[in-house]
Computed example of a mutant assay.
Amino acid sequence: MKTRAAVVEGPGQPFRLSELQIDEPRSDEILVRVKAVGLCHTDITMKMMLPEEMFPRVFGHEGAGVVEAVGADVRGVKVGDHVVMSFRSCRECERCQAGAVGYCRQAMALNYLGYRSDGSTTFHRDGAAVAGSFFGQSSFSELAIASPDNVVVVDPDVDLSTAAPFGCGFQTGAGAVLNTIDPDQASSLVIYGAGAVGLSAVAAARARRVQTILAVDTKDSRLEAAAGLGAVGVNPSELPDGSFVERIRELTGGGATAGVDTTAVPQVIKQAVRALAPRGTLVVVGLGAPEIELDAVDLMQNGKIVRGCIEGDSDPKTMIPELLGMYRAGDLPLGSLVTTYRFDQINEAVEDVEAGRVVKPVLVL
């Protein structure tokens, strides 16, 4: 079968629309006609970070669409179903069995390497393999091959352009608050980075009626969006040098109960830990710098916790329906963050989100 996909030919290169051949779904696979797909920071970061030998490649991991075909062994998904696609997990290892599907032992192979477990790719061009299977979908394509473990059936009346980002970005931010931190109303929560993930965390904190919610960003447009979701904005660039941590402590009554870092900037993380109250927790969800420096004395003497978090510690099978239910009830107003683009405007969408002109770009096919 033919499909049109946004292909990255090499590290750091732009997305280019190209006609590819896509396999028919195997017995344990699902073919989805993609209707909308979110552009996530991970797509942009990974196309810069991966080595030359892992290209050409199709990214995209926040796909939503309509099932076009299912393999003979697939259960629970049928042709015509509307679905949101998320990350893959084996569902069999001890971590998956314990509910920690984001930490699956097979996570790297299933989500990042670019091919099936037998070494084959789902895409080809002129007889040559094109890497796909990104998060088990590679949904920057009109057609995508997915699996039962990363496909979530949703109601047909759900707007797929709004639902698509729940597959990763919205799930990550909201899940970090609802699952990992699990705050009560008396908590104080600081979100570092007010992009799509950070603002999802803000919205989830407001849904939990957290008393004090701060959003930290250097872009006023992002802080305005955070204010619309119920947070107090803090722009570090407008504060005197060396006063940022004290400002956070002042606004949180002595230090934050918890924080969520979406920036992956080492200096931001270091300051975020310093701004915690004793026994406070910082949850790190950003992908970026591989090393950070922390004050070990502060960490130990004040009983602080710094922990990583994949996909909001969520199981998409239960989390995506829960979050969409909150969205439809008005408790998670994330639709306002979405700006739609045509598929052929993908590079424009990248430029706009990196410049801070939009929060969550979604490509509509």
Rank of each mutant, 00 (worst) to 15 (best):
A164P: 02
S336A: 15
A349Q: 06
A264S: 13
I44K: 01
D352M: 10
G102A: 06
K47W: 02
A231M: 08
V350C: 08
R279N: 13
A205N: 06
G99Y: 04
G71V: 09
A196G: 14
M48C: 07
G193E: 01
L189E: 00
D241K: 13
Q106G: 00
V158I: 15
P290R: 08
S139G: 04
A231Q: 08
F55D: 08
V210A: 11
S133C: 12
L199P: 02
V66G: 01
F140A: 03
H82Q: 09
R95P: 00
V101D: 02
P56Y: 09
A144R: 01
E224Y: 00
E354A: 00
G286E: 04
C40P: 05
V362A: 04
G80I: 03
C93I: 07
R125H: 11
M46S: 12
A205W: 04
A194H: 02
A207N: 04
L50M: 14
K317E: 09
A264F: 09
A174M: 07
V353D: 01
V284N: 09
I145S: 00
A226T: 04
R33K: 14
H82C: 10
V8L: 05
I292D: 09
Y341T: 02
L143A: 02
G308T: 12
D261H: 03
D184W: 13
K270L: 12
R274K: 15
T121W: 08
S117F: 12
G175D: 10
V268Y: 04
I320R: 10
S139E: 03
F134S: 01
D344H: 11
P156G: 06
E9N: 15
T257D: 10
R88A: 11
V70L: 07
G38V: 02
A6N: 05
T262C: 15
M319G: 00
K2T: 10
R307C: 14
A264E: 06
G356L: 09
G76R: 12
P333L: 11
S117D: 13
T180N: 09
C309D: 14
G335S: 10
V306Q: 07
S120W: 06
P236A: 05
A194V: 02
G228R: 12
G119K: 10
A69V: 02
D241E: 15
A174W: 05
L31T: 00
A227S: 14
G119R: 11
G228N: 07
A164S: 13
L199K: 05
L323V: 07
T218R: 14
E53Y: 14
Q97M: 11
M49E: 14
V153Q: 08
L160P: 01
D155K: 13
V358Q: 09
L332R: 10
L17D: 00
I181M: 09
V273P: 04
P14K: 07
A201N: 03
G173F: 05
S133G: 00
V79G: 11
N347L: 06
L337M: 13
N179S: 03
F123M: 03
E24Q: 14
A131C: 07
E62W: 06
S336W: 04
R75S: 15
E24D: 14
K35Q: 14
E224L: 11
